[in-house]
């Protein structure tokens, strides 16, 4: 069953086209990556799914039903998101940060992410990699059917990325991943959508994306 589908989504900010004709499905239990150069529209895509940005064209479906996302209803719909900038509540402890999402499952989520030793610490005193884990634990605490990961490897070192890779591979929910770290994307994704200036230029398996010359021109060629 398809968990989430975007149908021909377009977003315009004044004269700027942020997204144009984006169609994508994220089946339950599968990991779909969205890559592209800076400004390609990846985060805008997440903001459409979360209801922070209303699309000027197209629509979304969850299961068989069309839906208009609203941020505070996402967890009820089984969707959770991490943020690029971590987005933890600085005055709440690690435990409280995760409890905001779901007090009943907070401990289990923290244990799953391996950060139970920091329960009563305020997040801003922790290393960035640990804060990222707290943000992930908070998203997992809501027991999502679909998890949106916005650059989860940003600012992490190789060892931490290896740990993150293993953690994402263990997830049983659908995952929509926006990420610049190609090794992580290629390792965890079942399929990948490539955006350039808001338009899809390629869509396929990691091997197909690696072999696509358009992708190399637009994105991979930059590295």
């Amino acid at each position: 069953m398809t968990a989430l589908a975007l149908h021909d989504i377009g977003v315009r900010f004044g004269g700027l086209t942020a997204l144009d004709g984006v169609t994508l499905t994220v089946p339950e239990g599968r990991t779909v990556g969205v890559i592209g150069p800076n400004g390609a529209g990846k985060t805008t895509l997440f903001n459409v799914v979360c209801g922070f940005v209303r699309p000027s064209a197209g629509h979304l479906t969850l299961g068989d039903r069309r839906f208009r996302p609203r941020p505070h209803q996402l967890t009820r719909l089984g969707i959770a998101r991490t943020l690029q900038g971590v987005g933890l509540f600085p005055s709440l402890t690690v435990r409280e940060n995760v409890q905001v999402a779901n007090p009943a499952t907070a401990e289990a989520a923290l244990e799953r992410c391996g950060i139970t030793q920091h329960l009563n610490t305020r997040p801003m005193t922790l290393p960035y990699a640990v804060r990222k884990r707290v943000a992930l634990a908070r998203a997992l605490a809501s027991e999502p059917k679909l998890l949106l990961l916005d650059e989860p490897a940003g600012g992490l070192g190789p060892e931490e990325i290896a740990g993150l890779t293993a953690l994402i591979k263990e997830l049983t929910c659908g995952v929509l991943l926006v990420e610049h770290h190609m090794d992580l994307v290629m390792a965890v994704c079942d399929e990948i959508l490539v955006l350039d200036f808001g338009k899809p230029i390629a869509h396929g398996t990691p091997d197909e994306i690696r072999a696509d010359p358009k992708v190399a021109d637009a994105y991979l060629g930059e590295e």
Partner: peptide
Amino acid sequence: FAPDVARLLGVHV
């Protein structure tokens, strides 16, 4: 502290 983040976590801000 962060209404947008709270909304994403299901809080009716």
